[in-house]
């Protein structure tokens, strides 16, 4: 008897959960469907069955010089993440394994900079870019994105490092390992899962970043976010093309995300969900 009730409840929850997922995922699904339609189909009302035309994909790639922003996105996302790790790993080590009285203050200060509205520092950073010739360059944006995401990278690494027992590092030290060995040969290999998910999250954050990329690029260094933002107003007949461009912009995230769901969930919630 009790068993039957549990099964029925379970079926109920399964249906509810799948319904919620479908509602939330539906706009994405519809975009994928639209990307496989012709422009004429795309604007002729609601329909879930596309003609599986790949015309839009090839149009976007040939007409809009799609690969330039795509390459920019890859360079910005990967470059800024690797740079951030170089600065963040030692900093997170210091916070996790060699805490002082000030560690907590530094951590709070670091996180509080993330709470600051970006427009409050827009003018001065815009001027720095203008004066140093970094405007619309990949190197300028890479450095900026690295600086902007640095607090999150340090924070995430810190939460992962804290789970590693300090005794292991201490043992290595007592065995005469230098600090450099301790970090590169002992800590880093143990923290590979943590570093990997930090890397993943930061790549996604940098990939999605739009405020700075819109303000500080025109054509040369514009990544996909800026490219799609400038995909002009919805007047002409190009919904299918926009959908195709969107699908190509989110595909890397969907693929990366699929292979690393657990780490992604932890990352996107800043370590709150394990």
């Amino acid at each position: 008897m009790a068993r039957a009730v549990t099964t029925r409840t379970k079926i109920g929850y399964t249906i509810a959960a799948w319904a919620v997922a479908l509602v939330i995922f539906f706009p994405i699904l519809y975009t994928i469907i639209t990307s496989l339609k012709t422009e004429q189909e795309a604007i002729s009302g609601f329909s879930l069955i596309p003609s599986f035309s790949t015309q839009s994909f090839s149009d976007v790639q040939s007409q809009n010089n799609y690969w330039r922003p795509f390459t920019n996105s890859v360079i910005l996302a990967v470059g800024s993440t690797l740079l951030a790790l170089v600065v963040a790993i030692p900093a997170a080590w210091a916070m996790a394994f060699s805490p002082t009285k000030r560690t907590k203050d530094i951590l709070m200060w670091m996180l509080s900079t993330k709470m600051m509205p970006a427009v409050a520092v827009l003018v001065p950073i815009y001027l720095i870019f203008l004066r140093t010739g970094l405007m619309d360059t990949r190197i300028g944006l890479t450095i900026l994105l690295m600086l902007i995401n640095l607090p999150i990278v340090v924070w995430m690494l810190y939460t992962y490092f804290r789970e590693i027992p300090g005794e292991i590092l201490e043992a290595a030290r007592m065995d005469g390992a230098s600090l450099r060995d301790e970090i590169i040969h002992v800590l880093t290999p143990m923290a590979v899962p943590g570093i990997a998910s930090t890397l993943l999250l930061n790549v996604i954050l940098a990939w999605n970043e739009a405020f700075w990329t819109i303000q500080l690029t025109t054509t040369n260094a514009a990544p996909l976010s800026a490219f799609i933002a400038s995909f002009s107003s919805p007047q002409g007949l190009f919904w299918a093309k926009l959908s195709a461009a969107s699908v190509m912009a989110i595909a890397p995230i969907l693929i990366l995300g699929w292979f690393s769901q657990k780490q992604l969930v932890r990352g996107l919630t800043f370590g709150a969900v394990k």
């Binding site: 939330i24 706009p27 996909l224 799609i228 933002a229 912009a249 989110i250 995300g257 996107l268």
Partner: peptide
């Protein structure tokens, strides 16, 4: 469920 949060806001 997580997808809308993970993709770029611009998109």
């Amino acid at each position: 469920v997580l997808v809308p949060w993970a993709i770029p806001t611009i998109v």
